[in-house]
Computed example of a mutant assay.
Amino acid sequence: MIKGSCLCGKVTFEISGEPSSLSYCHCSRCRKAAGVFSAVVIGKAEDLHLRSGEEVIGRFKDAELKFERCFCKECGTSLGDLSSGQIYVMAASALDDDPKIRPSLHIHTASKPDWYEIKDDLMKFEGDYIPPAS
């Protein structure tokens, strides 16, 4: 079980299964929410269990966005996307426990700022990468 929460502790969640991947996302939405990129864990939607705080979760989605941006309305903690159909895309910064996997790839590299250079040997994808179901 991997536990997580927002900064103020009103939103708490657990991940029961092992995430499929830990990635660095460079899309414009993640950059705006987290900085140069956001570390995200991706896994099966049924493995994510919200334990508290549904009433303080803000949700942002416009017609063009594939994923919904969730955040705590009290403290502003970015939570990622809690409901993308079959998967979740959780901000790794909200995890309280070690997910036992390490970053393996960069996604949406076509959207990274020109001034930022990726200097590791992880796989890179210009757009989406959805890991295979395990």
Rank of each mutant, 00 (worst) to 15 (best):
M1A: 11
I2L: 11
G4R: 01
S5I: 00
C8A: 04
C8L: 02
G9Y: 01
V11T: 02
T12G: 08
F13C: 02
G17R: 12
G17T: 10
G17Y: 05
P19C: 06
L22C: 12
Y24A: 07
C25S: 09
C25M: 04
R29Y: 09
K32D: 05
K32T: 05
A33H: 00
A34F: 04
V36F: 06
I42A: 05
G43A: 08
K44D: 13
K44H: 13
D47I: 08
D47H: 13
H49I: 14
L50P: 00
R51P: 04
S52L: 05
G53N: 03
E54K: 14
V56N: 02
I57R: 02
F60V: 11
F60C: 05
K61R: 14
K61F: 07
D62E: 13
L65R: 12
L65T: 09
L65D: 13
L65I: 08
F67H: 12
F67A: 13
C70T: 14
C70P: 02
C75Q: 01
C75D: 00
S78W: 10
L79D: 06
L79I: 07
G80I: 08
L82C: 05
S83G: 14
S84G: 15
S84N: 14
G85D: 06
Q86D: 15
I87Y: 08
V89M: 10
A91S: 15
S93T: 10
D98N: 15
P99S: 09
R102M: 10
L105F: 12
T109F: 03
A110R: 06
A110L: 07
S111P: 00
P113F: 09
P113M: 11
E117C: 07
I118Y: 00
D120V: 04
L122V: 12
F125C: 00
E126L: 00
E126G: 01
G127L: 10
G127I: 02
Y129K: 05
P132Y: 04
A133R: 11
